[in-house]
């Protein structure tokens, strides 16, 4: 199986180490992985702001970049969800049948459902609180949404159980939004900030040293709050924990 690594724009620019950890992790579990060069953006920021059509060329570009891969795998649940849920109807308007939507996976989902590693060498002797991000939970089904009456599951927790020394917690409001929401964060700055502050405090109340999750965008938002208020908690993408020591 050939996997094309999908690195969204802000990971490319702000968190390249998340991309590196993703690559190492996929390599380690024995996947043939490559990075189609010069990736930019999936178009979600424009679409969520109300300019979905502006995402069409970016979607087409991604189709081209990943056409020779069996899977597209990326370390950002929200971007993956956007490709999966919205690229098809965006591309339909351009008379293109979307292929990526059928083969794209968030990296946690991919590891959990496709690769299914039984062990990882990772050691991370810390307390972490899982950030169940909205699109990870409610679009990619990485965990059971708190609103639904279905048995509890968490693909992130399952993966973290492979890490030695780790203690895993979840906040009280287990999957409430952190307030990022793309341009929502700047169009509604007061509400968004308040949501971010509440969310960070909920994570802190677990006693965790780190907030971890499958979405760098949410982590970036909470990191902004943490740094501004100099709070005693850090953020870390889940692949960086899973790839610890690789």
């Amino acid at each position: 199986m050939k996997v094309g690594l999908f690195i969204p724009c802000y990971i490319n620019a702000v968190y390249p180490e998340v991309g590196v950890a993703s690559y190492k992790l996929l390599k380690h579990v024995g996947v043939e992985v490559d990075y189609p060069i010069d990736q930019t953006c999936c178009g979600q920021p424009m679409a969520n702001a109300g300019f979905e059509d502006e995402a069409a060329r970016l979607a087409l570009r991604m189709e081209e970049q990943f056409k020779n891969y069996d899977y597209v795998v990326g370390p950002s649940a929200s971007c993956v969800a956007f490709v999966k849920e919205n690229h098809p109807h965006i591309l339909e308007k351009r008379d293109h049948a979307c292929m990526n939507s059928k083969k794209i996976y968030d990296i946690c989902e991919f590891l959990h459902d496709v690769v299914r590693p039984e062990s990882l060498p990772a050691v991370f002797p810390h307390k972490v609180s899982i950030h169940n991000s909205c699109h990870g939970v409610r679009e990619l089904h990485l965990s059971s949404p708190s609103e639904r009456n279905i048995p509890y599951y968490s693909k992130l927790r399952d993966l973290l159980s492979l890490v030695k020394g780790i203690e895993v917690f979840e906040p009280k409001r287990v999957d409430e939004c952190c307030g990022f929401g793309g341009m929502f964060a700047i169009e509604e700055p007061e509400v968004s900030t308040c949501m971010g502050q509440d969310k960070v405090r909920d994570h802190m109340s677990t006693g965790a040293e780190y907030i971890t999750g499958a979405d760098s965008s949410c982590l970036m938002h909470m990191e902004g709050v943490i740094k501004r208020e100099k709070l005693p908690i850090k953020t870390i993408h889940i692949v960086q924990i899973l790839a610890a020591g690789l």
Binding site: A13, V14, P16, V20, I186, G196, E223, V225
Partner: peptide
Amino acid sequence: NAWGKGRELPAFAKESFNDMWKKNKVR
């Protein structure tokens, strides 16, 4: 800067992932 109302901006990395890949730093 609406973001800056209650949050610090993220710091851009010294090298982007695209750059690192081209320089063969990802392995």
